[in-house]
Amino acid sequence: MDFKLLARQYRDELLDNILPFWLEKSQDREFGGYFTCLDRKGNVFDTDKFIWLQGREVWMFASMYNKVEKRPEWLECAVQGGEFLKKYGHDGNYNWYFSLTRDGRPLVEPYNIFSYTFATMAFGQLHLATGNPEYAEIAKKTFDIILSKVDNPKGRWNKVHPGTRDLKNFALPMILCNLALEIEHLLDKEYLERTIDTCIHEVMDTFYRPELGIIVENVTLGNELSDSFDGRITNPGHAIEAMWFIMDLGERLGRPELISRAVGIALKMIDYGWDREYGGIFYYKDRLGHPTQQLEWDQKLWWVHIETLISMIKGYRLTGSRECLDKFELVHDYTWSHFRDSEYPEWYGYLDRRGEVLLPLKGGKWKGCFHVPRGLYQCWKTLEECK
């Protein structure tokens, strides 16, 4: 495998295709912030603004400015989005709404914890890019609110009746593994280490089930398995993404045993999620093989495959695992041949089980300027370090 050639492929796709698309097509020059509902050609088909996707795009362009090149247009894009978020995205107390109208009026209340997590990431990177202390303060205050919500992320908007089947979800400890490192420069060292230890424990000792050899999405408050729709559901992509977060933490903490364990789990989750008939990784599975309540269970999603690419190339770089490299090649071939649009910029997000395009959109309520560019960047930089 020619790592230098592959690194250029990922770099060029990021810098020549993906980032120019979002820079040109998504910025709302009249009201600020970003359009994310973009059709195949990049035309806006809906003007609602989803806070978590606004935060992701602020983070992305600030991150590229900080890590790749000090391009003024990237910083300008990030700052204008951050200012829109600062002005309209929360209720005045950093409770971040889920969505707004184009001009910034609240549409959906602050029920979704990921509005908070990506606001924290956004303002953390903006502070690094600009040195503006106000951005640091927003990130820190929002992070404190996130930690206060760990036991009940949806707060008063939680639909579940308490006391009957109380479950906790994998997504929040998983995202905190990444978020803690993202805002490391803003946190007290002891506070940071305590948060990281808790997140690693939750991901690797609570949601990873050695008796099953896989990661589950929900467990009881007593850390037991639940034989219910929510208790049986697995999301292979989530688990695989979390494992590269753990690899990064293992490298940061000097814990090779943690890296090795994360690599082993990621490989298991790919085998578990791989569609042996049509290729690609299933979106959802039931751990007991029952029908899922998610009707989209057999779709092939962009982010699942991109996160798998990151996890496998990092696993190879950190451990030299030939199996990681083989899996990277397998998923690379599937991803570039199925998700990349050869006619228009940006990538498709949603394929049916057979790998045919299900929705031709390039952005929507759930897909924005995040997984594709972050994945291309991570793979580019990791491939440059591979031998």
Rank of each mutant, 00 (worst) to 15 (best):
H127C: 05
D205A: 11
N112P: 00
G163A: 01
Q54E: 15
K365G: 04
F84I: 08
E24Y: 05
R261D: 12
K314Y: 08
F229R: 06
R252I: 01
L126M: 09
I240H: 06
N218F: 14
K49Q: 13
P110C: 09
Y88V: 01
Y344C: 00
G254S: 12
F31W: 14
W96C: 07
G315C: 03
E202H: 05
N218G: 01
P153E: 05
S228W: 02
F21D: 08
I146F: 06
P291K: 08
T36M: 14
D103F: 02
E241N: 12
L359V: 15
Y116D: 14
T142F: 11
H161Q: 08
A129V: 03
G279K: 06
Q293N: 06
F339P: 09
M243Q: 14
L107T: 01
K41Y: 08
D12M: 01
T164E: 11
E184K: 13
T120M: 07
P72M: 04
Y272E: 09
I18Y: 00
L318W: 06
F245N: 08
N43Y: 04
F114Q: 11
S99N: 12
W74K: 02
L249F: 06
Y316M: 01
H338C: 13
R102F: 02
W380G: 02
S260P: 00
L176I: 15
H185A: 12
L267H: 01
K4A: 10
V160R: 13
L351S: 05
L147A: 03
L75S: 06
H90C: 06
E277V: 15
V44I: 15
I265T: 04
E76A: 15
D188G: 09
P153V: 03
T195D: 00
E182N: 13
D333K: 13
D352A: 11
A262K: 10
E257Y: 05
Y350K: 11
F123L: 09
V372P: 02
G82W: 05
Y88K: 01
D39W: 11
F328W: 14
A239T: 02
I146P: 07
V216Q: 11
L325P: 09
A171K: 02
N66K: 07
I146E: 10
S26I: 05
H185I: 13
Q27R: 15
G237N: 04
D166H: 04
H332D: 12
Y111E: 07
L301R: 15
Y283Q: 03
E73R: 05
T101V: 02
G264E: 15
T220G: 14
G131C: 13
F118Y: 15
K70T: 01
H161N: 00
Y272K: 06
L221E: 09
L309V: 07
S321V: 10
C37Y: 10
Y278H: 15
E346A: 13
H127L: 01
W157F: 15
